[in-house]
Design a protein around this nucleic acid. Structure first.
Lengths: 125, 125
DNA sequence: TGCAATACTTACCAAATGGTAAGCATGACT
DNA sequence: AGTCATGCTTACCATTTGGTAAGTATTGCA
């Protein structure tokens, strides 16, 4: 297998607890951010890339593929030229995002508390 | 700086969003598990090690130090021989754990859904 | 004297993760 | 024929992360 080949099916433990199992699908530098972006609606590959400042194409597809295998995002290919591929959240993905919301809120308070810098995101919705 | 030297102060972004800031303090193979263990009460170093099957001493202290710097755990040293060191959650740590609960619940359902294996934890209390 | 217990500390190494940059396929447009 | 756009794919490399195993310090106890 090569460098970028993603696993062929959902990662599947063994896990010590629920956190362990949830973190497994969310860990990766851009995954939660991708989920967040998609929560606002369907996005094309290029739109996602532009919406996530700093992500490389390699990592973006790699993460998208893993999220797809884990059943969190849906990939729809339109056979056009130039190609069009749209990504959206599955129901499972939306549930995960909901479960991430309290964590996001905690993080926002942490940013305020420690006065961390914020990265400006070009508005995406 | 050597291999194991932890950073001297809380990690501090810049962050893209709350998730980003929260994940930053939780990511690390054992961190959420350590938090989970400590949620049940104060633990000595050795107790934590025995409670987390597979963790190495190096990673355990490294993660504990980072959690301490990030203000999530409190470290209390008793000058005895042999030494005794007790770790416990701070209020901030308890808040983080609360924010992690929905994610844990999602993860538990994921384990059931995909029929993932579970690792047996020796009972720690 | 020598070993046990506890909480680290260190050196070294392997695997995982992520980045850069170039290449590929297709068809419309010039 | 050459360029553009899009969505990848690949090779290669650097950094990060985590593991193993040995060593340190202190004092009680056999």
């Amino acid at each position: 297998m090569t460098d970028t080949a993603p696993s062929a099916e959902p990662r599947s433990g063994p896990y010590i607890c629920g956190i362990d199992a949830a973190m497994d699908v969310v860990s990766g530098k851009w995954k939660s951010l991708i989920l967040w972006e998609l929560d606002a609606g369907t996005r094309r590959f290029g739109e996602l890339r532009r919406g996530l400042p700093g992500v490389s194409e390699k990592m973006l597809i790699q993460h998208l593929r893993e999220l797809e295998y884990d059943g969190l995002v849906h990939r729809e290919v339109y056979r056009e030229v130039p190609p069009r591929v749209e990504y959206s959240l599955t129901e499972l993905g939306r549930e995960l995002n909901a479960a991430l919301e309290p964590l996001a809120e905690w993080g926002r308070r942490r940013i305020d508390r420690i006065g961390a810098e914020r990265v400006e995101l070009p508005a995406t919705g």
